Simulated assay, not measured.
Amino acid sequence: MIGETAVGPKAPAARGRGLHPWAGFLLRRLAGLAVALAALVVVTFLMMQLIPGDPARALAGDTATGAQVEQLRHELGLDRPLTEQFTSYATGLLHGDLGQSFQTREPVAQVIGSRLPFTAELALLAIVLVLLLAVPLGMAVAIATRGGRRGRLDAAFTFVTGLVGATPEYVLGTLLVLVFAITLGVLPAAGAASVTALILPVAAIALPATCVLARIVRRETAGVLEQDYMRTARGRRLPPLRLYARHALPNLLTGTLTMGGLTLAGLLGGTVIVESVFNWPGLGSRVVQAILNRDYPVIQGTVLVLGVLATLLNMLVDLLLGLLDPRTLNGRNAP
């Protein structure tokens, strides 16, 4: 095989006395995961203290007396010192307890468990769509515009992907509803009653991420196409599919996954926002309701779960990078 992965230097041995490269790599990633999770627990707790308003007052209603509000604050544990509240919160997490909803008194784990499958369905479909569209699109544009050719195509690609990629998901979702649900009437505007109800929310989530990732793939492909081994491969007049799929694609995936992992992790947050636009029965609508009612445990639990999923997704990307390019196992970027 012609390519950097075939002729590049072997992965250097991990530092340490006989430590296998994969062992050192996994230890670093697990340590980073532990730090990220600890920081996430602290942030989700402190974030609730910054929300203006009193959840006890919101729960008791405007007609409640001061004594009734104070009694409710005591029952909810809001009158305890912050250190004591945090200790209780962290201890509960260690035992798998996310607390109880202030509003409905349901366990937060139960609230999240009943709605997370709907959010996961949108997010997974969007991720698959992003990968299926962004990689071929970015490669095709880079190949078509190699060496400064087809300048108009390059300019149009840059303009369209920049515009759509910068458009917030909820704005794009509103536009899609206006066009395809209200004006054309070909797709449902909200709900989850049918398979077709998935089309608009998945498109609203996937299109901005697709444009961002396609720009990354286009840039990485343009760099790969100028390498000596690609010139050699073109000189051998290999079939286009073999030339680009076998020799170009493996060598551009390292940089693409490094940046694309952040894009895909951010897609989870976009999923929650889009759910509110389409009245999708996932975590999004429940979080909006919890914010309005100052239901701290539901907000904390949802943000924590989404943060853990994003962290695990980034770790999965790191593992894929290690498999594709062993040189990254030593903590160094491939040249």
Rank of each mutant, 00 (worst) to 15 (best):
T254S: 06
G284L: 14
L292V: 14
L306Q: 08
G260K: 04
L257S: 00
Q289C: 10
L304R: 01
N251G: 02
P281R: 11
P281W: 15
M259G: 05
T254P: 00
G269H: 07
P240W: 09
G270D: 04
W280D: 08
H247Q: 02
M259T: 02
V274Q: 12
V305N: 06
R246Y: 09
M259Q: 04
L262Q: 07
T263H: 10
P281M: 15
I273D: 04
D295K: 06
T302R: 04
P250D: 04
G269I: 08
L268M: 12
V288W: 09
Q289G: 06
V288S: 01
A265W: 13
A248M: 02
G269L: 10
A265G: 05
L241P: 00
A290D: 05
N293S: 09
T302Q: 07
E275T: 04
V303E: 11
R246D: 10
S276W: 15
N251Q: 05
L267F: 13
V303S: 13
L292R: 02
T302V: 13
A265D: 09
N251K: 01
P297F: 14
V298T: 04
R286E: 15
V274F: 15
G307S: 12
L243N: 02
I299M: 09
A265C: 12
P239V: 12
N279S: 14
Y244V: 06
N251R: 00
Y296P: 01
M259R: 00
T256P: 00
L253A: 02
Q300K: 05
S276N: 14
L257M: 03
F278V: 07
R242A: 12
G284K: 03
I299R: 00
Y244T: 01
E275I: 05
M259S: 03
A265R: 01
Q289L: 10
G284V: 09
V305R: 02
P239S: 12
L249P: 00
G301T: 11
G269F: 11
N251V: 01
P250Y: 06
L268D: 05
E275F: 15
P297A: 15
R286H: 09
D295P: 09
L253N: 00
L283E: 09
R286S: 12
Y296W: 12
M259H: 01
L304M: 11
L268K: 02
R246F: 14
Q289V: 11
Y296I: 12
L252I: 03
L257P: 00
V287T: 11
L243Q: 04
V274D: 13
V274T: 13
L249K: 00
G301C: 13
L306W: 10
F278I: 13
L304Q: 02
L264W: 03
A265I: 07
T256I: 05
L264D: 02
